[in-house]
Design a protein around this nucleic acid. Structure first.
Lengths: 248, 248
DNA sequence: CAGAATGTGTGCGATAATCGCACTTTATGT
DNA sequence: ACATAAAGTGCGATTATCGCACACATTCTG
């Protein structure tokens, strides 16, 4: 059905492209067709258009993203001047942590890393990088982003977002989650352990806005690194000082 | 004109999207129309489709990329497992340098950073990050990538690529550039000073392939950091050891 | 402040692009 | 060798798209 002010073929194509967002290594046209629900002939034309345009390359019968998509991401980062204004600050404070620090914001129903720095002693595990996406409910980053919203928006979000049991410790109770978000708002930080990844803990603090969108600063580490109150306090202090140093 | 196996509306839309790759902060529909050559009504529909799909947001009358494009980049990085296999090694060797180290590959007629690490003491200047693109001819990264190609491909490339005078010192002579590429191939590293950015020097070494595409590892610094032969040799040695440590 | 320049929004007829179906061919798996 | 899955193809029907011209809105300039 034709919709004013829109190009449905283009929208379909973007949906095909978004199939590659999850990090699935190789996708055949048949798989893309199943994921999108589009007719196989339609999917074929759209995939080949992405290949012609340089965003996908085909190997055997499977497609994968090319690094051209990184250039687009680079366009976003350059437009915001993050390479100069944000990255050096994150590098400095990652060293203060001897760990990892990341700047994140919300994109739809998820959190997304938009800048990150880590030292060689940082915990590897999940393999976070620019562009990594995290769920909102079971992560410190997500809870702090939700906490930065209006209470009425939190109500709407909690009515829509479905908790997903990622570990044995993932909190599936919306009332409990809401309390954590409210506590994050009142105490100025979110702290989550074992809910997103077993053995991992995260702390997130508010940091200002990117455009009109709230951003948060976070660090993740092994849970035992924050066991002692002094270690936790030190990490929180460094995060807060990093937040004050960031010019967003 | 209809072309088999393709969707021209989608291709047009991707061309609109690519207008935002350059890091231009805000683009109006009129500007996008001029850049692409498309009719203004066509451009309007395509821009609004990108907005509907979450890739662009509009502020006043200008559009800008949203962080959603970073998630796509994250899909590329996750598919290649760079967050786990590459980033920790780069972090380790950035510390050895007390500077910057980056993994790059070729994308069309440019080099593109696909992973990067820097310490707080690294030189800021250009603000490189994942997704940063560099020209092939006046950069160590570019010359090393060209050097990794077949001699016949280098011939074709040098016949097509047009040198661009970025600094007073940019080499515009194709014969001279060809010699530098050949030297890079024979000595196993490329070294460039002041040609891309005044005051900046870069060293690049080969590092293996990503998929079927050659990759290189590079560091950049102030030119005076490599003035002494001992400093240069140390940097080259660290780069080579980093290259050996990377599992691509 | 008026006029010029630029950007945006809209309607609509023509037509080109797209769709999706069914069939064929190729590749892979058992 | 056969079954299954994926890809490739042709084509008629239909829809989506295009681009033009005009109107409206915003910004710039003298």
């Amino acid at each position: 059905m034709t919709q004013k002010n829109s190009a449905s073929t283009f929208a379909k194509g973007l949906k095909v492209l978004s199939c590659f967002e999850t990090g699935r290594r190789d996708l055949t046209m048949a798989e893309v067709s199943r994921l999108t629900g589009f007719d196989r002939a339609t999917t074929r034309r759209l995939c080949l258009t992405l290949e012609d345009s340089g965003y996908l390359q085909k190997e055997d019968r499977a497609f994968r993203l090319t690094p051209k998509i990184l250039a687009m991401a680079g366009g976003y980062l350059t437009a915001n001047d993050f390479g100069r204004s944000v990255q050096p600050v994150l590098n400095q404070f990652a060293e203060a942590f001897e760990g990892e620090i990341a700047l994140a914001m919300r994109d739809g129903d998820r959190a997304i890393y938009i800048a990150r720095s880590a030292t060689s002693s940082a915990r590897i595990s999940f393999g976070f990088s620019i562009g990594s996406t995290l769920p909102l409910l079971p992560t410190a980053v997500g809870q702090m982003l939700l906490a930065r919203g209006l209470a009425s928006d939190v109500d709407l979000d909690l009515a829509r977002l479905i908790p997903e049991k990622l570990t044995e410790a993932t909190d599936m109770d919306l009332t409990s989650i809401r309390q954590k978000i409210e506590r994050a708002a009142s105490q100025g930080y979110a702290f989550v352990r074992n809910e997103f990844e077993m053995g991992a803990a995260g702390i997130a603090v508010p940091v200002g806005n990117i455009g009109a969108s709230p951003a948060v600063l976070a660090t993740t580490a092994s849970i035992n690194q924050f066991d002692k109150a002094a270690e936790f306090d030190r990490a929180l202090d460094i995060l807060r000082r990093a937040a004050m140093n960031l010019r967003l």
